[in-house]
């Protein structure tokens, strides 16, 4: 077991190392002199020299990287060019909002995706199967930001039931927080529900054809028990893994959703940073997202190993 875990860790560490090189390399994509691009409004020679010194641009690239990664390892991701606040603090401030959005979206995706996937597999080639497939394909084809705009049009502009934008902390007023978050969470969860549905259907179809399910049926167990107790329990293993991996993708989807609903989270932070040419924040967000994704991937692999007796044997 430890051999397996160490093997996965041996892959994750060099991957993370390459991610840091990619993120560091981003600033070298800036057209022309990166120092000029980082300068902002004040373009005096003194300010230019200060930026070169501050970002160690006067040193060779490998040295720049070594200093950058050394700081990153201690949690220092630099300071925002605009607000002068540490990037790590900005991320820590915005992350809980996005995590709440991601968790609510995941709950919605599981509540829609798993039952429709089961129904679609159990009633294969029926009306329900076709309807679930159409819904699944639509979920993957509808842009999340457009779905958000359409929901705002209906629930906020037309019917006035939910707020169109804004955010209230759950510690301030839980009811208002949920009212503000339910639409964005549904928008983000709908696309994921489509993926969940397709995977649940696939996993259930393969499990329903297996020998132990045939044996359970031959023993005379009723269909509900066969599906829910015997088939679903095993089909859920790959779905749980997928769920962990999709949490990383949710961070990506949150960028657009937070923009549509003006939620001050992680996604809005990167978009605002892009428009303010606040490159340190962009780099910090990409690094944190990729690290979180690699960690979730590792966690998913380990969970899969622990819950699957065949791998342990």
């Amino acid at each position: 077991m430890w051999g397996y875990f160490l093997g996965r860790l041996a892959i994750a560490i060099p991957t993370l190392f390459i991610v840091t090189i990619i993120v560091f390399g981003l600033q070298h994509l800036l057209p022309g002199d990166p120092a000029l691009a980082l300068l902002g409004e004040d373009r005096s020679p003194e300010a230019y020299e200060q930026v070169r010194k501050q970002y160690h641009l006067d040193k060779p690239v490998p040295v720049q990287y070594a200093m950058w990664i050394g700081n990153a390892l201690t949690g220092d991701l630099g300071a925002s060019l605009r607000t002068k606040k540490p990037v790590a603090d900005l991320i820590a401030e915005k992350l809980p909002v996005t995590v709440q959005l991601a968790l609510m979206s995941m709950a919605i995706a599981l509540l829609i995706g798993i039952p429709t996937g089961i129904l679609s597999a159990v009633r294969r080639n029926s009306f329900w199967d076709y309807a679930a497939n159409v819904l699944g394909l639509s979920g993957q084809s509808v842009p999340t930001f457009w779905l958000g705009i359409m929901l705002i049009l209906l629930f906020s502009v037309r019917w006035g039931l939910l707020p169109a934008s804004g955010y209230v902390s759950p510690f301030e007023n839980l009811g208002d927080n949920l009212r503000a978050m339910i639409m964005p969470a549904f928008v983000l969860g709908a696309a994921l529900a489509a993926v969940m549905m397709r995977h649940t259907r696939g996993a259930m179809l393969s499990v329903l054809r297996s020998d132990y399910v045939r044996t359970a049926r031959a023993k005379g167990l009723n269909e509900r028990r066969v599906v829910l107790r015997h088939a679903l329990r095993n089909a859920l293993i790959p779905i749980i893994t997928l769920g962990a991996l999709q949490l990383g993708q949710l961070l990506s989807g949150a960028v657009l959703t937070e923009q549509v609903f003006t939620i001050p989270g992680f996604g809005k932070l990167i978009v605002d940073a892009v428009f303010n040419r606040d490159y340190a924040v962009v780099q910090g967000v990409v690094l944190v997202t990729a690290t979180a994704y690699i960690m979730l991937n590792l966690l998913a692999d380990m969970t899969y190993f622990l819950v699957n007796p065949r791998l342990r044997g």
Binding site: T15, L16, I18, V19, I21, I22, G248, Q249, L251, S252, G253, V255, L256, I270, V285, V286, T289, A290, Y293, I294, N297
Partner: peptide, 9 residues
């Protein structure tokens, strides 16, 4: 490493 960076981000 490239796959670890979410596509849109």
């Amino acid at each position: 490493a490239l796959l670890a960076c979410p596509f849109l981000i």
